[in-house]
Write a protein that binds this DNA or RNA. Structure first.
Lengths: 230, 230
DNA sequence: CAGTGGTCTAGACCACAAG
DNA sequence: TTGTGGTCTAGACCACTGG
């Protein structure tokens, strides 16, 4: 008979989402204020605030002080991609992970790499190529540059056991990263490593990692398969 | 002289991030409880809670009741990709958007499409092909299937002016979507539309949109260029 | 200036899970 | 059972911004 439990912010969020989806509140509409909604739901304003903030973070509401809260006209869909360490990605699917370091050298990077990493013209960088395997099958080909000035201790690291990615995640702090998706046709060597041919188009992910204004590493991972996101 | 302003949750978050990055708190470490941190920062527990929740949502902390809060051992990096309507994406960069409907027919979809959209074997679907242009240059090629049983009113829609995507966003409610990134080599016709050749590898995004258990639309967008994410 | 969201507080109770 | 995070409340003040 009586309402035993209090109104939770999830309750409010669900109700708000329903009203948006049912077009009870239409795109561009101004919705009631937090105070009004709190009265309607019989809860504290903070609870409404929590709910509306969550919905706004999903991009379905636009909130502005003094103005109020509007239903977003063009909800920008956001897809959150999880980027686990490859070993974890493979092991999470029950596969056996292995990693093979193919190349390791200290050299002057090409101009394109130097530019993207904002390296000095005279700076050398560590060039790594590696293959990631799932159940002994090629899973991804890695082509990496590491700014050795930013991470000098990597010179002494054994990267045949622990992958460069795991070593860097554990040893080198970073503050931000860029991500670029693309497609490419592999060179003969890459194709051979991945067990495919030059005729195929491969999906690639490039990650450029920064510690403040210092580039740490630029890595391109090339996959045979497509990648799904939630 | 005196501390004029109160401690904000952003202050706490910044401090927590510093301690994680400086390895004052190392991966796997249990950090102080909310009560302890609140005492240390001289603020309410709710403020600490807000800050720790934000950091945990970024994946750098693991929080569990009774256990406490730990620094994540393997912070799963999350990249949030914004997926705007193509017209907005182009216009946001100062380009002039145009849209050309190339094909529109009602037909039985191939088995692969039928399977992914969970359509009945006898169900027809609306097949659309379109080209999106930026400053009169080909920008993306669209290949779309629409479940007409789920969105019957699209049969009467003029999709030469408003793109199918914008029409659907405005008219067809949806509850969830899947996203798949991939690479492909275009067929001769697609290559011609995009002003490229079959020799190039193209980046593609597939989106499958659901309204509860009913598929609304399956669309594949093929781009010449790479896509960057923050 | 006024109205709206943003946040802090102090206290309270709940929910979960290790022991 | 107990300790920890999760949440709600009622009230207060702040911050931004349109008028």
């Amino acid at each position: 008979m009586s309402e035993r439990s209090r109104t939770t912010w999830q309750d409010v969020r669900a109700d708000v989402l329903d009203r948006i989806r049912s077009r009870d509140w239409k795109p561009g509409d101004l919705i009631p204020t937090e105070v009004e909604l709190a009265a309607e739901f019989g809860c504290a304003r903070a609870t409404v605030n929590r709910a509306l903030r969550a919905v706004a973070e999903d991009g379905l509401l636009d909130r502005r002080r003094k103005i109020g809260t509007r239903v977003a006209r063009h909800p920008v869909r956001r897809a959150t991609m999880r980027i686990p360490i490859l070993r974890h990605e493979i092991e999470a699917r029950g596969g056996a992970y292995a990693h093979r370091l193919l190349q390791r050298e200290n050299r002057l990077p090409p101009a394109a790499v130097r530019g993207r990493m904002a390296l000095l013209p005279t700076a050398r960088a560590l060039r790594l190529r590696a293959l990631h395997l799932a159940d002994d099958e090629p899973y991804a080909f890695e082509d990496r540059w590491v700014n050795v000035d930013a991470v000098p201790t990597i010179a002494a690291a054994d990267l045949t056991q622990l992958s460069a990615n795991e070593w860097l995640v554990a040893q080198a702090p970073f503050t931000s990263g860029d991500l670029t998706f693309g497609a490419l046709r592999p060179g003969a060597a890459t194709a051979a490593h991945l067990g495919t041919t030059k005729d195929h188009a491969l999906f690639s992910i490039e990650r450029l990692t920064w510690n403040d204004a210092t580039a740490i590493t630029l890595v391109r991972l090339t996959f045979q398969d497509r990648k799904s996101v939630v």
